[in-house]
Design a protein around this nucleic acid. Structure first.
Lengths: 215, 215
DNA sequence: AACGAATGTGAGAGGGTCTAACTATGGCGA
DNA sequence: TCGCCATAGTTAGACCCTCTCACATTCGTT
């Protein structure tokens, strides 16, 4: 534990090797997760796959939890980038929902690592919640426009608590639409990825599209 | 492994003791799950809490997975009963959503055991999917009434695949409403229970009510 | 060339699942 | 009432896991 490089890439060949190994560890970790879920993630197994013996990995990650936190961070980062890119291309709400679904389906366990069952005590570090807010901000932009004043009890509630901690800086109807977009997308995806639609053979893309179309 | 009692309670005092122990194991299991999530569930720890040593529990459950399956079954059963009871009291969609939310909040990990992150390979036994369908059936009744003919592309899709395996026996608009109800409720709840709303301090009850109000 | 930090090692503590062989207990039929 | 034997419980142990510690090695830097 020494010269943590300040920001970008490091000059130190030591440090360079370090990030390379960390990256390879994460690759193996994602493979394990994709195959068998987070619970099956094993530092030991990764070490053996990489040809080193057990405790060596603890030079690179303080423990299993830190590795997982890192993976969560990367997953959020990936989703935020995906969402932002789609927004940059001027996509509609329906299009955005489809993009998010595509991202989720590409690696269900990656999605579930973020939005699946959380460990009761766990609190994500601040920089991760920041990425989450970044995603919400894009949603707010996509759902922007429309009326300024609250039109439903929930929007009145949002208006009322405006200025409080955690309040989103946007007109309450837009916030409402963004939240609805988010919850509806999550609802469809979490059920689809958990396989609850499989026996009914539903066209999930179509269902999702209609769920968010009128937002 | 002998006289599996045919249906109801058993006369065998042996068998009676057996179900009593199984029940106590499950109580401890739920406590552990509520406290630390499924991953922390440990047969060993339960055995020690019950004053017996490790492998004794394997007389009662073939393994950790069978215990979990049993817990999943009980959770589904509990939710199905709750939903059916609410329906029996003639509740509206908004009321039903509230009841489901109450059930989920009462024990978040119980909800997440059903609708949270699934293990990739896992397939629930048939009797469990049957309970799931039971819940869906109540939803279909609550969402019944209204038009008979499809009014959207998704409803046309549902109509088209009517008669196929897994098709719900109801007019497509009702099926659509039931599915929307289900996905929207899931969306709000999965985000709430994962703590994604906490930093914003949202009135989730109100949000959920408005999400399902127009179904 | 040699110092010293970073890296990798094996041993081992402590936890988990689960199997196998052995002992003790208590319900049931004779 | 007595004894059989299925059932319940035990310990030992194989094999995972996470993670710590003391030690050996490597390699960039001075």
């Amino acid at each position: 534990m020494a010269t943590e490089s300040p920001a970008g890439t490091a000059a130190n060949p030591r440090e360079r090797y370090r990030v390379q190994v960390r990256e390879e560890v994460k690759r193996h970790a994602w493979e394990q997760i994709a195959a068998n879920g987070v619970t099956a993630l094993s530092l030991n197994a990764i070490a053996k796959e990489m040809g080193m013996s057990g405790p060596a990995l603890y030079r690179y990650f303080a423990g299993r939890d830190e590795l997982i936190t890192e993976l969560v961070r990367d997953a959020y980062r990936s989703l935020a980038d995906t969402v932002r890119a789609a927004h940059g291309l001027g996509v509609t709400v329906v299009g955005l929902a489809s993009v998010i679904r595509g991202w989720a389906i590409a690696d269900p366990q990656r999605y579930l690592l973020i939005y699946g069952t959380p460990v009761p005590g766990y609190h994500a570090p601040d920089d991760i919640t920041a990425i989450s807010n970044e995603i919400l901000a894009v949603l707010l932009e996509v759902c922007g426009g429309g009326p300024q004043d609250p039109e439903t009890p929930f929007e009145a509630f949002l208006q009322m608590k405006n200025g409080w901690a955690g309040a989103l800086p946007a007109p309450s109807p837009a916030v409402h639409r963004a939240l609805s977009f988010w919850t509806r997308t999550q609802g469809v995806l979490s059920l689809e990825l958990a396989g609850h639609f499989t026996p009914m053979g539903i066209d999930v893309e179509l269902l999702l599209a209609e769920e968010v179309a009128d937002l």
